[in-house]
Design a protein around this nucleic acid. Structure first.
Lengths: 197, 197
DNA sequence: TTTGCAGACTTAGTATTTCTATCCCTCCGC
DNA sequence: GCGGAGGGATAGAAATACTAAGTCTGCAAA
């Protein structure tokens, strides 16, 4: 049977906007502009002939139909993620690509991230960079740098250094700060900050 | 949490090819060329780093991972369809768009398809045409004509006329012949064929 | 053995979709 | 009244999807 379905892209925009009740925040999470999210959601609504959001001056409210649709779509994405991970568990987004600025790079062992298993299980590879745009573009999952900002909608976690040392900035997209990849990386970095001072 | 997922378009190509074990037949069902299906499936495999099919000279076999993934993806599409229909039941593909050639049009009442409820519930609208390409392009769901062919991968149902009359051809995509929309249309057409003779 | 056919693969170009940047609007707080 | 937040609209740029055409392989028929 041929399926007639909304595009996943429109559904992705809807789901993120529905969770955040904000096109702006959803855009930040998805790494696109708010205008793109707005357009995709509008396209979804037009194709369904149903309003999914009520637009307010400073955010969104879900309509009744939106309230019905959101958990179902979230479940669909969860199932899709599970099914995909079942066949490609090592590939799909489970290991972070880490951006590391030059001064942080000098602090790390040359074997990083392969010097301990826990880190190896959460870091896929790293690249030397100081460019936060790479986060927005999904080219890296987080960036570790010694200074900088402002980070806009990106999340900043400060890794405090001892008094004579230099705090580090761990920067990632909203929502990724608490995941186990970030935690493993942060834990490891804290040890290196302590040693570098 | 940001989802990192294959594009629905690649999944759609995979799912259809997996059901048919043929890019060619899947392409026909999806209304694109076999080259497009091949590319999309290849793109999916590359993004996952997993082979989903073994290519044979005259068709496909699913790999073990392909065998695992297919039913899960089919279920995802089913769930997505259900969720979508729950909020937009009257819009989404439930009523057929019917193509009708000129001679068949003359056979039908001017009120067609609105002269009976059953038909009105299954036919969204109709357009005068004799072009089977419109089926492939999803511009119409079926075509009713008095002669023609060959139909390639499209399904042909012949509506037999009494001896002095002209058989009709009901043409649609594979898989749509047995659905209730087609049945309702066929039943109605049989009555008109009988009356026209 | 040779030939023809079916169907998957590849490629370059075309068509379509998605995204961006920019401006506009409304609302709210100061 | 002004500034800021955030959604809306638009035109153009960028990315993706599709097509047409040619290539390759394997199989069946002559």
């Amino acid at each position: 049977m041929t399926y007639r379905l909304p595009s996943l892209n429109t559904l992705r925009a809807f789901e993120a906007a529905g969770r955040h009740l904000s096109f702006k925040t959803a855009a930040s999470e998805l790494g696109v502009t708010a205008g793109a999210v707005s357009q995709q959601v509008r396209k979804l609504e037009d194709s369904l002939g149903v309003a999914l959001f009520r637009r307010l001056p400073h955010g969104l409210l879900l309509t009744d139909k939106g309230e019905t649709y959101l958990p179902a779509i979230t479940a669909v994405f969860d199932d899709l993620t599970e099914a995909t991970e079942a066949i490609a568990p090592k590939i799909n987004s489970k290991k972070f690509r880490v951006g590391v600025c030059a001064s942080v790079k000098r602090m790390l062992p040359v074997t990083w991230p392969n010097h301990v298993d826990t880190l190896r299980n959460h870091v896929r590879d790293w690249v030397e960079t100081n460019d936060t745009e790479m986060i927005r573009k999904d080219e890296i999952d987080c960036l570790v740098r010694s200074r900088g900002g402002p980070y806009g909608e990106l999340t900043l976690i400060i890794i405090p250094a001892p008094p004579a040392g230099q705090d580090l900035h761990f920067v990632c997209k909203p929502g990724l700060a608490d995941c186990r990849q970030s935690k493993a990386i942060l834990q490891d970095l804290m040890q290196h900050v302590a040693r570098a001072s």
